[in-house]
C-alpha cells in the first residue's frame, strides 16, 4: 500500500495549487462584483459591458428574454467560461477569473443548473454526501468515513427538501421536480456564501413552487442568492431587487414595481408579457 501512500504525497506536492480557503472578505462591500465584462462567441456578443454587484446576504432575481446572457453570466461567475475582458471579484479578495470551477466551488459559490443535474446512478443520500462541504481532494476523499455528524447534517437537508422517504432510492428515478429539490439540497450541503440558482421552479407544481420560494427567502440573509427565473409570478413572490438583462447588459435594476414600470423594460420584455 506504500504506493498509494506515495500517490497521496504527489497530491501534497501540488497542494500550493489549491487556494488557501480563506473566508471571503465582504467587509468593504459587495460579495460579487462584475465590471465591464464582455464575452463573444464567434462574433456574437453574449455579454456586453456587463456591470453588476450583489450585496452580501441579498436575494436577487435576474430576468430577461432568451439570449439575454443569463446563463453565460453564471458560466463566467463559476469559471466555466472565461470572459474576453472585464473583472469579476468574489468579495474584495478573490479574483474569480484566475480560478477554475472546483476552486470557485470550494470557495463558496454553489450553482444549480438550468436542467436539473444530479448523479442518477447514485442514491439521494449519496448525492447529498458528495455535495457536503468537506475536503474534496483525492486522497482525503478516498479515506473519508461517514461520521455521525455528517449523517445528521444530511438528515436535516433531506428533511428540508422533503426527500427523507426516498433517501435510498436512485436519483435517476426521481421526478423532475424532485430532482430540482435534490439539486437545491446539494447546494445547501455545500454551505455556499453565494448561490446561483438557474430556473429553480421549472417543472414544479404550485405547492412545490411555494415551498421553494419559502426556502430561498429563508436562505437570504445568511447567504446571498441569485435566482434566474422566467416565471414572473414566482419572481414577484420572492423578489426584493430585480435586474433585467437584455442583449448581454443590464437594462434596468430595482424593485419589481420599479422595473415593471420602466418604459424601456416594458418595450423589450414585459411589453410582450403584459
Amino acid at each position: 500500500m506504500s504506493i498509494i501512500e506515495e500517490l497521496s504525497n504527489r497530491d501534497r506536492v501540488f497542494e500550493f495549487l489549491t487556494p488557501a480557503v480563506s473566508p471571503v472578505d465582504t467587509r468593504h462591500g459587495p460579495i460579487l462584483y462584475m465590471e465591464d465584462v464582455n464575452v463573444s462567441f464567434d462574433g456574437f456578443r453574449a455579454i456586453n459591458n456587463l456591470n453588476m454587484t450583489i450585496d452580501d446576504g441579498e436575494l436577487r432575481c435576474i430576468i430577461g428574454p432568451n439570449g439575454a446572457g443569463k446563463t453565460t453570466m453564471m458560466d463566467i461567475i463559476t469559471g466555466k467560461t472565461a470572459p474576453d475582458t472585464g473583472s469579476v471579484w468574489f468579495g474584495s479578495r478573490h479574483n474569480l477569473l484566475t480560478m477554475n470551477e472546483p476552486e470557485i466551488a470550494t470557495l463558496g459559490i454553489g450553482r444549480k443548473f438550468q436542467k436539473p443535474t444530479v448523479f442518477e446512478a447514485l442514491t439521494v443520500f449519496e448525492n447529498l454526501e458528495l455535495a457536503m462541504a468537506t475536503d474534496k481532494r483525492v486522497i482525503p476523499t478516498l479515506r473519508a468515513a461517514m461520521k455521525a455528524e455528517f449523517r445528521e447534517r444530511i438528515g436535516e437537508v433531506l428533511e428540508t427538501i422533503g426527500l427523507q422517504d426516498l433517501r435510498n432510492q436512485l436519483a435517476g428515478i426521481l421526478s423532475h421536480g424532485q430532482k430540482q429539490w435534490l439539486e437545491i439540497g446539494m447546494l445547501l450541503m455545500q454551505k455556499p456564501r453565494l448561490l446561483l440558482v438557474d430556473e429553480p421552479v421549472a417543472g414544479m407544481t404550485e405547492q412545490e413552487m411555494e415551498r421553494t420560494a419559502e426556502l430561498l427567502t429563508s436562505l437570504a440573509g445568511k447567504q446571498s442568492v441569485v435566482v434566474v427565473e422566467h416565471d414572473m409570478g414566482f419572481v414577484r413572490s420572492i423578489a426584493r431587487k430585480v435586474t433585467v438583462l437584455h442583449q448581454g447588459s443590464v437594462l434596468a435594476e430595482g424593485s419589481m414595481d420599479q422595473v415593471s414600470n420602466d418604459p424601456e423594460v416594458i418595450k423589450v420584455y414585459l411589453g410582450e408579457e403584459a
Binding site: V118, F119, R137
Partner: peptide, 26 residues
C-alpha cells in the same frame, strides 16, 4: 469509498461534480 462515488459522479455528470468542488481531472 466516497472516491468511488465521486468517480461515478464524474462519469455521469462531470460538470456537476466540478461545480461541487471536485477536481475531476485529479
Amino acid at each position: 469509498s466516497k472516491l468511488g462515488r465521486v468517480s461515478i459522479a464524474c462519469r455521469d455528470a462531470e460538470a456537476r461534480a466540478r461545480f461541487l468542488g471536485y477536481r475531476v481531472d485529479r
